[in-house]
Design a binder for these strands. Sequence first.
DNA 1: GATGAATGAGTATTCATTCAT
DNA 2: TATGAATGAATACTCATTCAT
Lengths: 228, 228, 228, 228
Amino acid sequence: MGIKERKEREKERRRQQIMVAAKRVFSDKGFSRATMEDIAKEAELSAGTIYLYFKNKDELCASLTLRILQYLQMRVEHVYNEKDLNIEGKVETLKEALYDVYEFDPLILRNMFHLHSSETFKNLSSELLEEINRLSRKSIRTIGLIFKDSLKDGLFENRNAMEIAYVVWAVFSGLALWEESRQTFAYEGNLKETLELAFEIIRRGLFNYAIDASSSPSDDADDNSEDE
Amino acid sequence: MGIKERKEREKERRRQQIMVAAKRVFSDKGFSRATMEDIAKEAELSAGTIYLYFKNKDELCASLTLRILQYLQMRVEHVYNEKDLNIEGKVETLKEALYDVYEFDPLILRNMFHLHSSETFKNLSSELLEEINRLSRKSIRTIGLIFKDSLKDGLFENRNAMEIAYVVWAVFSGLALWEESRQTFAYEGNLKETLELAFEIIRRGLFNYAIDASSSPSDDADDNSEDE
Amino acid sequence: MGIKERKEREKERRRQQIMVAAKRVFSDKGFSRATMEDIAKEAELSAGTIYLYFKNKDELCASLTLRILQYLQMRVEHVYNEKDLNIEGKVETLKEALYDVYEFDPLILRNMFHLHSSETFKNLSSELLEEINRLSRKSIRTIGLIFKDSLKDGLFENRNAMEIAYVVWAVFSGLALWEESRQTFAYEGNLKETLELAFEIIRRGLFNYAIDASSSPSDDADDNSEDE
Amino acid sequence: MGIKERKEREKERRRQQIMVAAKRVFSDKGFSRATMEDIAKEAELSAGTIYLYFKNKDELCASLTLRILQYLQMRVEHVYNEKDLNIEGKVETLKEALYDVYEFDPLILRNMFHLHSSETFKNLSSELLEEINRLSRKSIRTIGLIFKDSLKDGLFENRNAMEIAYVVWAVFSGLALWEESRQTFAYEGNLKETLELAFEIIRRGLFNYAIDASSSPSDDADDNSEDE
DNA sequence: GATGAATGAGTATTCATTCAT
DNA sequence: TATGAATGAATACTCATTCAT
């Protein structure tokens, strides 16, 4: 039905409106200190209205996480499907993708922290929770797939693709965190530029590691090069 | 006085006892969801007693952060003072130091997040806050000093030491975070081993970056190689 | 809007309902011993609801004080504006006015005591505090004005009007206090009647003082008959 | 026993020391906001020690009240026993006595307020409570006795002595209160001088009332001139 | 759908009081 | 006798959530 469809679209628009407001408020005050009233005010709605669109505060937070994970997966998958790029080009594109994800919502990691808090789970519908876990695993696996072809070519052969994916993800997380703690460490420099430096170091490390490893596998006695 | 001294020591022991309990509870539930009652129960004390040793909940949390920062600074300074190591050896030792810090208290980063939340400051005595900021800056600066000598030798010459320090710190943070989000990403592998891989990649990237950069400085047109 | 107006009136009614309950509970238990729960129960509301209408307990108490001061000022001003009365008549009317104020809310003085406690100020919005101070000064000044005309006529000429106003106010306060401590002093008599006696004494003293003073001003060597 | 006696005296000294400290702290912060810790610190003792001398906080407060009542009774009785004074002289001396009492402990009235709070009674030993009530009644009765002789002489004959005593007491209380609320009413004048004025007015009113009343007793139809 | 008034469960914090030393 | 560490009961205040309108 045209009417039903329009209603549905209207409803989705409201959800987005609330999520945008929530993102802003969480970003400002942190999850615990942000009140539903704050978010409602930011969204120019009443507090009660939010409950028409989200079951509770935790589920609103989880929805934010889900959205960013969807964006992450979309971008990462796009990198994987890029036919015309060699591994170096893919890693460069991956870097850009991750950076865009970070810029889209720098809160992603803080949100995830909140999610990890065991007591939060109780308030989440199991579907939402599962969808989040599914997407998390899927995107890390996709990052792994980006490196997997190189394993066949002999690059990185001493490590499995998933391990490398985790490292890349960890570094990405670290850069996000670094930005968060900038105040404490009183960093006054140019963020973007330092991010570039970090990724440059990682990228070179990755490939030089690959080269060293492939030319002298005996150097690493303790490697477990099995794929999972 | 023997008596006064013993009392002092007894008091310090209580503080430690409470901090250990708090660390455990914060670790479990997150800062906001952990109640003073929880912590008291964990410490086998009454809630009121905690207030004899810490002004409030925020100051208890900040004290945890301060403790880990003191340990961090101690370890990092030790690396810097190591006379018999070349830069490669120092980086290797730095890696071990950071890893030990992480194991000493994996909460460090989550605590810092909480601290960054602007509204927390109001509840902290300015001395504590300043000590935390002072130590944070000092340790990052010490990490920078570790690389500074190499700048004179021509290594890393296109970047200043502080930028490199920030990158190293970011990666360290990332590894910590990575551990935090392990549940979501359903990683079942060996943490220690993956940490080794990550640092190995960083280390190689660092030095290969150095070599490339020093041999062809013109590649980076936008570098600002001034030391701060 | 009719709707908006009705809502506004409804809101004001709730404030009054809470203040009436608070008056009763404060009266019964004293300010410190009265809990918000007590007041809520008396008002047949939940404790949280009170905070929708008053910022905190101190501000609720201050609002009670403000209300009685508004009534005091209104009554006192009315006495001052009475054209057809000579000074004797005005003092008689003033007596009645003050007595009505006392009956309207016998707590007035206890509330003011609580207000004077320096630490209370911090919890009060500055507007409320200023309004209270403004009204306090205004009503004492208005009482002074009632006597001022008599100063021109030669009555009370050795004292300024404000000093007399303070004395009248002190006696009024004393009568209120007297009622408060009735239990301790085990007075079983008729309050109203004794109040009449007290004011009668004051009134006669006032005028006889005036007469004596005006006829032999030299008796008081140390007078400072300047008006403020 | 000499030893026992010395111990007793030592104990009484401690009680006084604590009461002096309590008076100061109550005066400063009000009863509710003053903590036992505050009082202990002021008395240069530990909080626990206070409980060796006073059963609880309420009883400490009541003891202060008792002490001032003892002083009041002593002074008032002295006035009553003064053989060489006529009624005018006695009233003048009474004024001075009350003023001295007020200066000895301006808190007296605030303390009494606290005492009146019904819930306080539960924490008081019945002996203490009864002693306070006994003394309160006794001093007001003694003030009454001061006027009683004048009743025989025809002065004040339309009123009973107790009623006059209550009025005098009320004015005294009012003057004390007046000092307490000085801040709010922004009075900048000289307290002592205004006190003089107030008592002067009362005194004159009293005697002029007496004269009027004695010359035209029929004016007051509703008088109850019986002594209790 | 939208509101926002009302709720009530939850929590940090305080402080009189106790008691082992 | 004096201490002060420990307690636990009390309480102001907050805020997610509900529901009548």
